[in-house]
Design a protein around this nucleic acid. Structure first.
Lengths: 353, 353
DNA sequence: CTGTTAGCGCCTTCAA
DNA sequence: TTGAAGGCGCTAACAG
């Protein structure tokens, strides 16, 4: 790898001059610039950002931590953030925490060592990371929390209007005539989950229905666990709800599997609404009515806020809490069931994972 | 951000000693190590990797370029590579080329400047990147091509046994009784596509069938274009094939959309097999018989090879070309259609995107 | 075992 | 407009 010095020698100028043409910070005579550029080309010179960063103490690099970029919601966020960052000459380092707080800390530490100028983070499931975010901030590394907002820490954040979104989904089910609507949630330790629950309850109350504990099915974020929970709950035909609303893609998949294992189908046997798209296209059935979060936008806006924070490093600014609206995509799974009889045929199954 | 010097001052030792305890390269007395570790903790010190890298000229960072990590195949590769890299203390910078060769060059340049020690790359669609890979290599930056292997460049690569995989899919359709099988491909400029085509033709020939040009539908990688192409082709009931095999997820989605727009369904009207999973779960229908590529493994193995290359930097080694086998997941879309009559009902539709 | 010190490659005054 | 030189934070000899 050629260095600035080699370029300078080859062009017959000083390293200073080379630096000037590379950064464009100082005007250089046409003749010398030409020589320098030739040398750069023939040597295939690429400035060493490591050295540059050490000198300027700017890396033009952002970090983003997501739980698992194998889950389609996250790559979209990353892509949005990447676009926002690139627009201002920043690169993005994306890593997966796999919902592990330990790993998250480790990644945070590595990212710090890598001197990222700012951080986008979707907190790992288990809470208590609020303090970590504050530590980062006080170390001068701006953080924007994405999707999941920590309990009481005062950090910038971009997320979705969870309450309104869940209300919207529930309202829709109610409008379609469903009355016994169960909500399937992930861990209520996550604030998002609680807010979505809140929206659900609000919607029910407004419709004159009393939320019931029996109809709040709290699970974790593992599909199989969710599936078996739902299977158990659904196997009791007496108390079976007439519709399900799920707070995220993972719970939804679990719930659907559980349903299927019981021989239940949507919309035939149960209405169904979920947060987050489950498939890439409407042509797949069951086609699921979905509360869609603007993932790309979330990432993009978060990057914007972060970059802005970095730019105005010195000045104190109020905490930004950006809430983006979700949209409802109505599909078949919430179409009111007309052939009620079918559910009578259903035979409760034994657990069979 | 605290520096090594501040830690040294606070612990009352020299920077050398701090460095020794941080890197563990030189033994330090228990007493001093204790003092240093305390100082590190209270100062919340994180070694500056930028400075370290400048000194050691090692960044412990790998780059990976994929077309679009919004396509589920790629995040899996990235995750695999990330795991492989982390195992050896390496970080991974993942970026999207969006199939643009210009952007790819740009990213390559940035990654070089960032001093990545090696590169994993899924080449952008339009060819001619072979030379770029060679330039990288000759600059001392090992490259492993993933999924897409350049035409004639001699680079390490990890990909799938395309010919065998396509044969497997086609054989299966033949075994199910299909005879007029069309292959829907992306750009045949991509070697993968050509090999898959080759496997398809091989399979037909072995079954005593003559491959026909009419049944090779070449498209690009944009879903809508694919859809309209397939719509056009399928609208002619005379020459309609009885099954489709698609070379990747994008073409498959396009083909399915095209089919649906014509009122055709699988497996009722057409058998269907594709490379790459279209949905996250079998519970969605049509459930598609799929040639599954071991994406995570591809990434993991590629990282292994790359790391190995980096480790043995000096020594010349033969080019590694790793071909992983795909597996066939048989589902309903390839179940031989029994109610032939239905296709007679189909009325060719006008284009209606 | 511990401390000292010379750069790593680059940018940025500063002087010419 | 150009060149010279200091130093960013750290590691790796090396000397003590």
């Amino acid at each position: 790898m050629a260095t600035i010095k080699e370029v300078a020698d080859r062009a017959g100028v000083s390293v200073g001059t080379v630096s000037h043409v590379v950064t464009g910070s100082v005007p250089v005579s046409e003749i010398l610039r030409q020589r320098v550029e030739d040398a750069i080309r023939t040597l295939d010179y690429h400035p060493n950002y490591v050295a540059r960063s050490l000198k300027t103490s700017r890396t033009h690099t952002l970090g983003i931590i997501v739980p698992d970029m194998t889950i389609s919601f996250y790559p979209q966020i990353i892509r949005g953030a990447e676009t926002g960052a690139r627009g201002k000459g920043y690169s993005l380092i994306a890593v997966n925490s796999l919902e592990s707080p330990e790993r998250q800390s480790e990644l945070l530490s590595i990212l710090r060592s890598q001197q990222v100028e700012g951080l986008l983070v979707v907190l790992a499931e288990s809470g208590g990371s609020g303090r970590q975010m504050e530590r980062l901030e006080s170390a001068g590394i701006p953080v924007v929390c994405v999707d999941r907002v920590p309990e009481r820490a005062s950090v910038d954040s971009v997320s979705v209007e969870d309450v309104a979104a869940a209300e919207m989904g529930t309202d829709h089910l109610l409008a379609m005539g469903y009355r016994r609507i169960a909500m399937v949630t992930g861990p209520l330790a996550l604030r998002n989950e609680r807010r979505r629950l809140q929206g659900y309850e609000q919607s029910l109350r407004r419709a004159g229905l009393q939320p019931s504990e029996d109809l709040v099915w709290q699970g974790n974020l593992r599909c199989e666990d969710l599936a078996s929970m739902c299977r158990d709950r659904l196997n009791d035909p007496e108390n079976r709800p007439d519709a399900l609303i799920c707070t995220n893609g993972t719970t939804a998949l679990g719930a659907l599997r559980g349903m299927y294992q019981c021989g239940l189908r949507t919309p035939d046997d149960l209405g169904f609404v979920t947060f987050d798209e489950l498939t890439v296209d409407d042509l797949f059935s069951p086609s699921i009515t979905t509360v869609v979060q603007p993932a790309y936008d979330i990432g993009f806006r978060a990057a914007e806020i972060l970059l802005n924070r970095i730019q105005n490093k010195g000045t104190r600014q109020a905490v930004t809490t950006l809430l983006l609206p979700a949209t409802l995509k109505v599909r078949e799974s919430s179409r009111r069931n007309l052939r009620r009889t079918r559910s009578a045929e259903v035979v409760p199954l034994r657990a069979s994972s």
